[in-house]
């Protein structure tokens, strides 16, 4: 069963890579961190994780804290993280909270 788990995790990674390729905007940023997210996705996730407000972090704050990223690439990262189940939207589609609270 361990073997089966590994193969399904691998498949998920391949699918997500494909998704990013189709979406385009990542350019040379194919660097993957240990948890299978790109550096940009990880930054977005960490900021959302770090937000103490009950309604979560809103998109505007995210944009202000990631001045080197474009709105489109932040949106992409948010969409990806939300599809993977790492984050979810709260009061409206601009507020996000993390599911991976330790």
């Amino acid at each position: 069963s361990k073997c089966h788990n590994q193969s399904s995790a691998g498949r998920a990674l391949i699918i997500s890579n494909k998704g990013m390729g189709e979406a385009g905007n990542f350019g040379g940023n194919s660097f993957m961190t240990a948890n299978g997210l790109s550096a940009a996705q990880n930054q977005v996730l960490n900021l959302i994780k770090a937000c103490p407000r009950p309604e979560g972090l809103n998109f505007h704050d995210l944009k202000n804290q990631l001045p080197h990223m474009t709105v489109a690439s932040i949106k992409q990262a948010v969409d990806f993280l939300s599809n993977e189940g790492h984050i979810y939207s709260t009061v409206d589609d601009d507020h996000f909270k993390s599911t991976d609270a330790e």
């Binding site: 788990n5 399904s8 995790a9 998920a12 939300s82 599809n83 993977e84 189940g85 790492h86 984050i87 979810y88 939207s89 709260t90 009061v91 909270k97 599911t99 991976d100």
Partner: peptide, 20 residues
């Protein structure tokens, strides 16, 4: 809000599905 609970539950399910 029900919406938040539902989104959270859906997100946790997706996360769990990834980790199985």
């Amino acid at each position: 809000l029900v919406r938040i609970q539902r989104n959270k539950a859906a997100a946790l399910l997706r996360l769990a599905a990834r980790n199985v």
